[in-house]
Nucleic acid binder design. Sequence first.
DNA 1: TTACATATTTAGACTAGTCTAAATATTTGT
DNA 2: ACAAATATTTAGACTAGTCTAAATATGTAA
Lengths: 222, 222
Amino acid sequence: MIISLTEENYLKAIYTLSHLSEESEVTTNQISDHLSIKAATVTDMLKRLAEKKLINYIPYQGVKLSDKGKQTAIKVVRKHRLWEVFLVDKLNFKWDEVHEIAEQLEHIQSDELIQRLDTFLGKPKFDPHGDPIPDANGLLNVVKAIPLNQNKTKGLFVFVGVCEHSKTFLQHLTSIGLKIGDSVKVEEINEFDNSYKVKINKNNSQFFSNKVASNILVEIKK
Amino acid sequence: MIISLTEENYLKAIYTLSHLSEESEVTTNQISDHLSIKAATVTDMLKRLAEKKLINYIPYQGVKLSDKGKQTAIKVVRKHRLWEVFLVDKLNFKWDEVHEIAEQLEHIQSDELIQRLDTFLGKPKFDPHGDPIPDANGLLNVVKAIPLNQNKTKGLFVFVGVCEHSKTFLQHLTSIGLKIGDSVKVEEINEFDNSYKVKINKNNSQFFSNKVASNILVEIKK
DNA sequence: TTACATATTTAGACTAGTCTAAATATTTGT
DNA sequence: ACAAATATTTAGACTAGTCTAAATATGTAA
């Protein structure tokens, strides 16, 4: 069965949205907002995807990926993240420059290509933003990281990923001097604005706004 | 101005066809055959490309690329050939396996990506089939190679490229043991069927049919 | 529970890219 | 130079993917 580039994008959107909240059902409006496509158009496409057995769709009730649909979505995510590793590790792009290009590359059709790219890159487990890369069977490393602002205690953490992927946020982290894998020591949490006084690696202390802290994923440092 | 993937393919086809013969004008039917798209459809597209000033089109008289159209076509060819080098040199694909994938990759839009890929690959001048790669300004190495069967004399040559790019032909050359850069010594030319007795590098002599000889590009070895 | 607000779907229309069939233009062979 | 063959264009239709406007369904608050 042929799955068009557009269909792949809808499947990926549904996959992503279904992991943002506890709800397993994704709504028409969520997809509409996420893809910047009018809800009426989304409804049309949902009917087509249901026709193809890629989703389970009940009018007015939202939508869930079928096994086949999930498999397709995960493959697209795998390709996206592998290409991002390629762009950063091999072509020296910055982590805030690769999203758009990977959005195009993720639709290249060739299983052999993905497999060889994966090998060429050393079978990476995470992309440049710390997001896990599904393996060839669609299995994902479960990351138990949490946003920094959910830690209400001082302590030593490792920066392992971001929630927000926008260019401006990534550039902000770069200007702060924060990179994936850096250690983040929380020295103070200010109650009035929930800002964080932190030390990155061995550098001078600085402040993270709550907005920054809420978009940074950390694990407790062992 | 946005140029669609489909439009890029038409421009590339016109570019390729205009270099196959002396005629600088390309006909509707040539494009139709080359792309396996009905002539009526091609006419429609030619009107649209003319509207966008990418070609000069006179109904019934054929078509020529404008400067802008030629520039676009050459960029697509550059991307195609660079990606082929990537697939063969970095991902270890065989030369007969890369065409289809490169047909997809050639449409990825990012000038920065092409430039970095070029650098990563060591600014190659030729693709895995010996076809010259246009530089960033669209300038091509002029190759003065000729098909082997246009040499009517014995002598020592270097195999530098192919005319035919089909998978079966490329696989045939591989099974013969002929690779780009090999020396080809013509020991005999048989008049009755225009077959060639040749020695590849220092190996045993073998025969090339005229069909093979006509699709192999060689230069005289210095 | 009813009315309002919100979410979703339906209906109808548009564009890009394709097709087939028919009409027209060009080229070629006698 | 004319008729036949060939090449090209026009006309009308189809699909995928999008839109806007209108209709309908669902959820919520008094």
